[in-house]
Amino acid sequence: MTGAIRHGAAGRLWRTTVITLPYAWLLLFFLVPFAIVFKISFADPIVAQPPFTPFFDWAESSPRRLLATFDNYLFLLEDKLYWVSYLRSIRIAFISTLLCLLLGYPMAYGIARARPPWRSLLLMLVILPFWTSFLLRVYAWIVMLGKHGVVNNALLSVGFIDGPLQMLYTDAAVYLGIVYTYIPFMILPLYASLEKLDQNLHDAAMDLGATPWKVFTDITLPLSMPGVIAGSLLVFIPALGEFVIPSLLGGIDSLMIGRTLYDEFFVNRDWPLASAVATVLLFILILPIMLFQRYQQGEES
């Protein structure tokens, strides 16, 4: 920045302050914690405060003895529970992302094609639920889907069913909950890329005799791919580690890795194993997160 150079020491001081403060904060409270998780994932659980063994044996031997152990990772490989949790989480996050795309794409397209005054109103209606509590919106589905909930009552009174359906505490409820809470994250980037779309391209293709489906697959969809990718990442990554939705709407056997990690930590109090679970989850997420960062940087420029 030219100003800093022109103003010499004082300008440089201001520039250094602006950069250093948030940088230091994020280093200390965002990056360093991951290193600690990584370190503790190699420790053994013990009954103490804190409940894990140190990395090095400081007191006993004079050449420090490395106490690190791969036990936690070996345990993750051996115990089927963790495999099942990871794979189920990936499956549930993937299918939920597809469902969000299926519902979100036509909604975003419909909003982008609406008249301008309607457009801002509809967009606001998409964003509005995001400002109310996420937890309470998940809870709303307990009221809807319960054995004596709104949906069962409605179906019973119409006579579609003879007895209440088991809807709450199933995988279907988890899908529903994820789509419901994350769909604004899908619609917004989709809308942003669909809104930029040149209507002339569409009209030209139609004039040349392309079917609406062909126009969609050859023009609209490829041009909106940045939005599709951004929206999918914004849904997939948090959904993979989701804890609240499977705990409130899923069955007892509905294992998702976020819930397994939480229970490992709070119920079994096995901090090293919870750290190992988190480390593996982070490795699964590195690729999607880097993709997301590249998209963010693309937006910047």
């Binding site: 914690p33 580690g241 999607p288």
Partner: peptide, 30 residues
């Protein structure tokens, strides 16, 4: 360190809460 900085801004937006929560707690304990 600009690349690291942009990464530290983008990652919290999508990071699963269980990971952020666990890592911060372990930081506070350490």
């Amino acid at each position: 360190g600009r690349t690291v900085f942009t990464g530290m801004i983008a990652a919290p937006l999508v990071m699963p809460e269980v990971i952020t929560g666990l890592s911060l707690l372990l930081l506070f304990v350490s």
